[in-house]
Structure formats: C-alpha cells, structure tokens
Design a binder for these strands. Sequence first.
DNA 1: ACCTGAACACCGTTCAAGT
DNA 2: ACCTGAACACCGTTCAAGT
Lengths: 217, 217
Amino acid sequence: MASKLGQRVIAEAALAAIDADGVEALSMRRIAQDLGSSAMSLYTYFPDKNSLLDGVTQLLLAEVEAPPEDAHWRDAMRHIMRAVRLVGLRHKNAAVLIRRFPPHTPDALVFVEAGFRAFRRAGFDALSTARCYRALAAYSLGTIDIELGGYFTAESRVITGNAREDIGSASSDRLLPLVTEIGPTLNEQDDAAEFEYGLELLLDGFADAMARAGRTV
Amino acid sequence: MASKLGQRVIAEAALAAIDADGVEALSMRRIAQDLGSSAMSLYTYFPDKNSLLDGVTQLLLAEVEAPPEDAHWRDAMRHIMRAVRLVGLRHKNAAVLIRRFPPHTPDALVFVEAGFRAFRRAGFDALSTARCYRALAAYSLGTIDIELGGYFTAESRVITGNAREDIGSASSDRLLPLVTEIGPTLNEQDDAAEFEYGLELLLDGFADAMARAGRTV
DNA sequence: ACCTGAACACCGTTCAAGT
DNA sequence: ACCTGAACACCGTTCAAGT
C-alpha cells in the first residue's frame, strides 16, 4: 500500500488516474488497485463515487491561485479567471469536473473569497458583486466546454441515413454557406486570445455599470 | 412495437426517457424496452451510445427558434441566446448534452447560420463574427451549467474528517466571511434577469468594438 | 438489411465477515 | 473503525444465429 488511506490520498490518486486516462476510465476498482487496496475500502472515506469526484474537484479548485490582496478589482478578477483556466489546462481530462461541482471546502473557496473581497474593496455592494461574479462564472465554465471539451474542434460526428447529412457535404455548403465559411475559422482561433477578448468585454461592462451608478472604479 | 425503428424514432424515445428520468438513468436496454424492441436493434441505427446521445442533442438544437431574417444583429443574437436557454429550460435533464455535442446536422445548424447571417449583414467580417459567436457560446454554455446544473444552488456536499470543513460551519464564517454573506445571494438570483444582464454586456461590447473599428452598427 | 437472445467484460454498491 | 472478497443488479457491446 502506497500510503495510509484517507480522503486526500484517495482524491489525489483519482486525480492522477483521471489526468492519465480520463474521467470515463475512472472506476472505484481502478483507484483501489493504484493504491494497493480494495474498492470497498474507499467507501470508508467517501459515501459514493460522486462524492469522490467532488473531492477531486475541490483539490483542483484549491490549485487556483488567488490574486494579491491589494489588487484593483479588475486585475484581481482577471487574475482569478486566468488562474481557473490554467488549472483546466493543467488538468485537461479533469477540467470537466469543475462544471459539475462548485467549490465548497475552505481551500477551494480561497479564490472566491479573494474575488469577493476585491469587488467589495472597490465599492461594489453585495448584489453587484454577486451579479458580476455570476456573469464571470458563466463565461469561465463555458470556456472550459469550448476549449477543453473541444466544442468547436470535435470532428463532426456523422449521422448517416434518412434525410440527414453533415457539415462539409455538398448540400450543406448550399444550405449553410456561412457555417461552411466560418466553421473552420472557429477551429483555428487562438484560445488564449479569444478568452481574453470576452473577459475584457465583461470587465468593461462592469466598470461602465459602476460608473453609471455614480461611483468611480 | 410503437413505430418503425429509425434514427429519429430512437432519438425521440431517448429524449423522452431523459426528460422523464435524467441522462444517468438512460440505458440502451431502457430505450429498447420503451420502443418494444431489443437493445441490440438500436445498433443498426447508431454505432454506439455516444452517437445516440449526439443524435438526441441534434434533436434538441433543432428546436432552437431562429430569428427573423431581417433582424438587427443585436436583436438576432439576443433572440438566439434566449431560444437556446428556453430549449434548456424545456428539457432540464437533457440540457447538459448541449455542452457536450455541438450542432452539426443541417436542422441543428439553422440557428447558427441565421446568427452568422445577422452579423455579416451588419458588416462584421468573418473573424469578428467568429470571435463574437465564440464569446456568446461560452456564456450560453456556462449559463446551462449554472442554471440547469444548479451550480450555485447545489447543497454543499459534506466532506468530513481531516481538517476539512464546509461552508456554513463556524470556522468558515470566520475564514470566509464574504462567501458566507454573498453565497446565499447567488442562490436567490433571478436566473432570467441575470442571464439578460451578462448577455447585454457582451452585446454592448461587440457594438463598442465595431464602433471603434469605424463602422456604425 | 434488420433484429434477436445469450454471453463477455465490465460497473457501483450491498452484505456478511473479518481485524 | 477499518478493510476484505463475494455477490447483486446492473451496464455497453460482441457474437452467432436467425429472418
């Protein structure tokens, strides 16, 4: 046995297995084997597989680097958004878990608390802070789908038969000329640059809204 | 047998089953049973379960209502974004599939083509169109996670033992006062209103960028 | 071409038994 | 309290056989 069993050790072994072979290949038996233990021993520390995956996610979220305490809210939020994206890139196979399990352990919430603090320091009230945080969270989670889930790059799956045809076929070129023209452009985008583009739009919008509300940020 | 087997009939049965009992409860045997057939008969029409789920997703995306052909780009994109969200709300259990399988059949791409057309009519070039579409897609997919995945409402899962504690505990109130204060606010947000808020920020940003590029939109 | 039931190689989890 | 192997009730998919 590699190390004394415990939530942390088990979640770390699961994360390593996911990094190596993907979430789909993860099984309780597989983790146990990697730890030199039995599948059922894991149930001493996690009530079920879902909780274990949640535990892995908390581990991931704890890796998100918090911004410096004195940062301007714009720099702080940019810092956090980039940090989440980087954790996803560091754990490409595990990133999808971030969409499923929100942060809820103290370690995983450090960056959230820091982000809230940056907003409040700048004069955002609780409602504005929640509103801005939500918009950023939506954009961040969607970015994971697009970049790590290969939303635009996924080979278009062929559904043959019936009257159905796929992109790239002669008739779809005729019916969907702009999809045919712009689709490839979406594949070739620079992920980092496009991420920054949308992020700055949102931050600009928050700043404008605050300015309109009569406060300087 | 309810109706002659085929991709469409099978995908519709699968969607009905997912609507009723969720993606997790869907099995090839279950669909076959609903259709009065055998699990293996499905493999005549889909190579595997993943393709079938993709087919269900194309069905969902084909439900997305396209905007009127003469709409201003802003109205067109607002229309599409709301339409996607409404399909998700109509199929709460199936909505998660939208994140996994991009549109690729002609029917499912109708709204995409219409969106591209609206941008191009307004003078956006191919690159700007791709860029704006991507930012909106990220926001839309992330919204599904937050609203339908219950990102903020999910009961904080308890991870006991070790030095770990959860939100709401005495010590996290001390360590994470703003999470404690603002967390409940996130739960109580009006989903539709918050969705509109972030959406308009992005649309404002596109308009500003176009204006700065010297074009009137 | 289309459909079938049996079988294979897995799952997560319950259980009864051990320490 | 912690860990175990066997067993249960499932999976998706392959196969050999049918029409």
